[in-house]
Design a protein around this nucleic acid. Structure first.
Lengths: 154, 154
DNA sequence: CTAAAATAGGACTAATATAGTCTTATTTAA
DNA sequence: TTAAATAAGACTATATTAGTCCTATTTTAG
């Protein structure tokens, strides 16, 4: 359904909170209380973010989590990569090779991959810092001010 | 998982085939044979595309389906709208209002909506004609040639 | 040295979404 | 009047995602 998973959604929430207090450590318990989410779920998210080195953790009493690097250096694309278990790509055939017999002479696959690259680029260009502070996104200026060639029907 | 549904994937396949022979009608049976997909599934896709007026149909014997307008006038975004049942948006809270208690002072939601708008714009700009002929996409030139500010980690 | 407070990994269950099929009704040409 | 089509939508099976729980490890404090 062209949605990011809930874990990814929670992930951005948690990370923006960490980004707001970069000097502090937060335990799962505290984050759960502040963000009104259940502790086991937050824990799952943070463990995945840790494995992908977006957060650093300190174990033991008084331990907790903090961003592994400045919020300007963490992109939405990286958060998605950390929390979605399928590889990036809007269609199965364009994300993973060998899922279709006619892959060779399929023009559509190549075009989906172009679309993937453009979307990916958009997501690469949005940082965690952008998600916290409501500054216009870099790609917005480029894309949204152009004259529409085809009307959208939402 | 940030994927379009399989129905949408099939939809682009079916539509590109119709686009290749704009003067002809295709029955479900014929499309199923040519595209190596099961007839009931193709039928489901075409019915949805018909309801959204992307294809026109002729009922009765010798009936079938054809594009409702030129391939240049059908966008990937329109195909997605026709075949995904959830409204467009990468997160639930940014696609639908009222799914979260703190919606008012949530800075993240607004930023997801900006991201949605940019991604949507990319998808609006790719036509069915683009999906058939391997011409560079309009947005590719704009976005992919810029100097990366942040490295992607795939 | 032990207890308490944390994270780490991963298995497991439940809920949800998607895919795919089938049935019945309607339309049209021969 | 029959056969070949589409239309609508209910239904079932599968796959994915969400969420929880258990066990192990780490660290601080008393």
């Amino acid at each position: 359904m062209l949605r990011v998973s809930k874990l990814t959604d929670y992930g951005t929430l948690v990370l923006t909170h960490l980004a707001s207090f970069p000097e502090r450590l937060f335990s799962v318990t505290e984050l759960a209380q502040v963000l009104h989410l259940n502790a086991p779920t937050i824990s799952k998210v943070l463990k995945a973010l840790g494995r992908h080195e977006l957060v650093s953790s300190v174990r033991g009493a008084h331990g907790g989590y903090a961003l592994a690097r400045p919020a300007t250096e963490i992109s939405v694309a990286q958060i998605i990569d950390a929390l979605e278990d399928q590889p990036f790509g809007l269609t199965e055939c364009s994300a993973t090779a060998g899922t279709c017999d006619i892959e060779g002479d399929c023009r559509i696959r190549a075009n989906w991959q172009r679309i993937n690259a453009v979307v990916r680029r958009v997501l690469d260009d949005v940082s965690l810092a952008d998600m916290v502070q409501p500054t216009p996104l870099a790609t917005e200026a480029l894309l949204l001010r152009r004259t529409p060639e085809r009307k959208s029907t939402p």
